[in-house]
């Protein structure tokens, strides 16, 4: 059984704490957070809490550090953990800067430690089914992928989300899910083009992007944060002899409509994608399983997302270094 410590004990750590419990294996026993209230919460949940990551690394020496910090704090926490000899689970994106992402991947490799980034679509049963079908040759050679992701604006209490410099906005934080999945399916990217609309008054952050791949295939991305837009995703992959499509909303397993106006769509499964992801990450650490995502792939997703964000800022085509 691996010992696990959270770096940061905010919203994502609480989600992951419950997912560790659902996964049924090792559970975090340490947490580091600068906020005393959050440390008290971690202790109430049965964990030993520390005021800094360095303190936790030195005194608790966890086998694994699970980084659940705001994006701009990922890189220093990942680096310190790897240098202390821990394996690292890190929420996506690995970090905001492509050169830094590559350096973290190289550091993990040189230290012989796992750096597993939570690109969770790889653990969604619908995305996995689509990917397996594509790899089975059901659509032939890939041509055009279309990805769509809409979600409610993150709550204002998490102010770092609203600061582009801290989280990277809708492209680096939301679209990167689909960017990673498209890279997984379509291989090395060549160039990006994008446009973005931000409206601070309403909170809308909306981006449309294209990626061209070295194979000639292309992908379109639509990502939206807005108040009350609801949650929805779609992914479509058209090849030279077939088509694959998944959609979170067109055919939900359950649709509840209350007569007072509330309605809700649900697609229950016996284990959540987050629990499946943590189960797999622990299997890699504890039993040497082959990771379904490696740090170089996570760094490439950062590079592609950064190119898309830069294209949106500069209005130019941006080449992607691979």
């Amino acid at each position: 059984m691996a010992t696990i410590g959270f770096a940061g004990y905010g919203f994502m750590a609480r989600v992951r704490r419950d997912a560790y419990a659902a996964a049924g294996g090792s559970r975090p026993s340490f947490a580091a957070d600068t906020d005393p209230a959050r440390r008290a919460e971690a202790e109430a949940a049965g964990m030993k809490a520390f005021a800094s990551i360095e303190d936790m690394l030195e005194r608790a020496r966890p086998d694994v550090v699970d980084v659940c910090l705001p994006t701009h704090l990922h890189a220093p926490a990942v680096r310190a953990s790897l240098e202390a000899g821990a394996h690292v689970f890190c929420e996506k994106p690995l970090c905001a800067n492509p050169a830094e992402a590559r350096a973290l991947a190289a550091l993990a490799a040189s230290r012989g430690r796992l750096l597993l980034v939570g690109h969770i679509l790889r653990f969604f049963p619908d995305y996995r089914t689509l990917l397996n079908s594509y790899r089975n040759g059901d659509v032939g050679a890939p041509g055009v992928a279309r990805a769509r992701r809409l979600t409610n604006r993150p709550p204002e209490s998490r102010a770092w989300y609203c600061d582009d410099a801290l989280c990277g906005g809708v492209i680096l934080d939301l679209m990167i899910h689909d960017i990673d999945f498209a890279l997984l399916a379509l291989g090395a990217p060549e160039r990006a083009f994008a446009r973005r609309a931000c409206d601070p008054a309403s909170g809308l952050d909306f981006a449309l992007a294209t990626l061209r791949f070295k194979s000639g295939a292309m992908a379109h991305f639509e990502a939206c944060w807005a108040a009350n837009i609801g949650f929805r995703y779609e992914f479509e992959l058209a090849g030279d002899r077939g088509l694959l499509h998944i959609d979170s909303a067109s055919k939900p397993a359950l649709k509840t409509s209350l007569y007072d106006g509330c309605s809700r769509l649900e697609n229950p499964t016996s284990k959540s994608p987050m629990a499946l992801q943590l189960e797999h990450f622990l299997d890699c650490v504890e039993n040497g399983a082959e990771p379904l995502i490696n740090a170089d792939e996570a760094a490439l997703a950062v590079a592609a997302a950064d190119a898309i964000a830069r294209s949106a800022r500069e209005g130019k085509v941006v080449a992607i270094e691979t």
Partner: peptide, 20 residues
């Protein structure tokens, strides 16, 4: 008397059009 639920137990699927 307060709401309705529509269940489609096998809606959890991916569409696959395969010319083969």
């Amino acid at each position: 008397d307060a709401g309705a639920i529509e269940l489609d137990a096998f809606a959890q699927n991916a569409l696959c059009s395969d010319d083969r």
